[in-house]
Design a protein around this nucleic acid. Sequence first.
DNA 1: AGTGAAAGATCCTTCTT
DNA 2: AAGAAGGATCTTTCACT
Lengths: 147, 147
Amino acid sequence: MLDDLDRKLLDILVKDSRASLKELAQQVGLSSPSVSERLRRLEERGVIRAFTVEIDPEALGYPLQAIVRIRPLPGKLHIVQQLIEEIPEFGECDKVTGDDCFVARLYVRSMSELDKLLDRIADKAETSTAIIKAQPIRRRPPPMGNA
Amino acid sequence: MLDDLDRKLLDILVKDSRASLKELAQQVGLSSPSVSERLRRLEERGVIRAFTVEIDPEALGYPLQAIVRIRPLPGKLHIVQQLIEEIPEFGECDKVTGDDCFVARLYVRSMSELDKLLDRIADKAETSTAIIKAQPIRRRPPPMGNA
DNA sequence: AGTGAAAGATCCTTCTT
DNA sequence: AAGAAGGATCTTTCACT
């Protein structure tokens, strides 16, 4: 699927998505047109999902984060999922196996806001909340092999 | 801290980190030099942590993800944290309050690899693993207000 | 698939107001 | 912060390997 050159390109882009074709080209040892073509295909195939920017949540006024495990009450699964999706403070949500149905990340401005947001699903699901104290590993992609 | 224009710029960049100054300028109604200066400061202040790319893990050969809760045995906290950080398949790790000390995301190629990786910390911590079946919300930043 | 050159477009920065 | 302008830089096209 992906060859070493593709992986190398991805590796560079993860660190700097604004690298120019020229820059990418010389770093991987290809010509600009080749890189251009490879990038096009990587995007087209969905390998690259987005060129984006990572923002410090605190700068946006959200100094607190929590991990919330959510177990919808019988028959409430869909309603709960919809509710989660509608609350923009949820910055991530995974549907998982096991007793907890969802594991989600919640950005909040304060403890009272956390409480308020959780109240909105309190009557439809059991929740279990853990406050994030530190982030030993911030979001990063899986290993890219011999990139 | 951030004004509406800054938030608007961030909002655009989250969707396309390769937008040019010119493009950004006309979208927020400023001149290129102004945008250039604002961007410089946003980076400098750490509001923008990185210009990056979001990659489909499956394309890299990791079709499975798991959420792992990790509770180090007494006295093993530091060793466990170090171990987690050394395993590149961990794509994210938060240190949280509560019984579980860490909540981490693990990218794996297969169930057997999952088992193998968890074995590496099995003698130093109790773990509780949930396989991700779907991702209702993929990573996104907190609300940017009136961006 | 990839290269290399070339042309044209685009961009970023500087300077002045 | 705007606006213009100059010069650098980039991206794409095309012919060829």
